[in-house]
Design a protein around this nucleic acid. Structure first.
Length: 280
DNA sequence: CTGTAATCCTGCGAGC
DNA sequence: TGCTCGCAGGATTACA
């Protein structure tokens, strides 16, 4: 399930494969995704060239330029949802089922968007509509470099559970269920602790735990639980380094305790009751 | 300001 | 073997 490290890996993979490539044809399927693809957008794609792929939180931005004076025609805003796959493959590779978008490129390759559960989305933002601004309004800072003071302030004034706060994209952008659990373990904090109960030291530990977990996961090209693959089809490796996620009933990596699972914020949360004591 | 639950969706594995 | 059922959960919305 793509969170920031997976989306970052896709962005890094796609960047060199797409830069300067021209769209010679475009195909979009009938199945509904999380957000509608408007018919009128389809006709605009052919003839445009991809610019530099970017990422913000769990969102991918793919600028497309028109041939004339390399003016940006618009930007594709993509969310991989739960099972989205965005890959560049040889044109003669067989089409997998649940393929929803195909960009035919000028070097006998395809950029394909596949999404089994259809929680993902692809949208077109014409130049002039500020995509960064659109995302900026609902997203907090990137988790690789979290400003300490605002993070501490957000904790101090929140009575929500830590799990709910970490999943809130407006507090930190890009953290999902897996990395929230892993960060809380590394910080030694129970997922049901409330933000305002954290000491300054605990708050600092949590902030650096998020940064560390996300950074290490990116180094491992993300985590492949089921369907996730990078932009060139490679799987991730961080699932082999999980301390708590999906390890219910197994032994804690640092103590003799057993990993437990509780539901917080409607999401399953995995933690070690010894290393992450309740209360505080 | 909280939390909970439903909504979208398909595949998989456990249990019978 | 084949069925049902629970679960996976990102973002959004409705409701208590």
């Amino acid at each position: 399930m793509p969170e920031l490290p997976e989306v970052e890996t896709v962005a890094r993979d796609l960047r060199p494969l797409l830069a300067g490539r021209k769209v010679v044809a475009f195909w979009v399927g009938e199945a509904k995704l999380r957000r509608p693809w408007k018919r009128s957008w389809s006709g605009l794609m052919a003839g445009l060239r991809f610019g530099e792929v970017r990422r913000r939180g769990k969102w991918l931005m793919l600028p497309l330029e028109s041939r004339k004076p390399t003016a940006v025609a618009g930007t594709l805003l993509v969310h991989l949802g739960m099972t989205g796959q965005f890959t560049v493959v040889p044109a003669d590779d067989p089409w997998a089922d649940h393929t929803h978008f195909v960009f035919f490129l000028d070097n006998q390759t395809h950029l394909r968007f596949r999404d089994i559960r259809r929680f993902g989305s692809v949208e077109w933002f014409p130049a002039g509509q500020d995509v960064d601004n659109h995302l900026g309004e609902k997203l907090g800072p990137e988790p690789l470099d979290i400003p300490a003071a605002p993070f501490a302030e957000a904790m101090r004034r929140s009575k929500r559970t830590l799990k709910a706060i970490l999943l809130d994209q407006a507090v930190v952008a890009g953290v999902g269920n897996i990395y929230a659990d892993e960060a809380l373990f590394r910080a030694g904090l129970h997922p049901k602790r409330r933000g305002h109960t954290l000491t300054a030291a605990e708050c600092d530990r949590l902030r650096t735990a998020i940064e560390t977990v996300i950074a290490r996961a990116i180094e491992s090209r993300g985590s492949t639980i089921r369907d996730y693959v990078g932009g060139s089809g490679l799987r991730g490796g961080f699932q082999n380094e999980f301390a708590v996620y999906g390890r219910t009933g197994e032994k804690c990596v640092t103590c003799a305790g057993g990993i437990e699972r509780v539901v917080v914020s409607g999401r399953s949360s995995h933690f070690c009751p010894v290393c992450q004591p309740a209360g505080g």
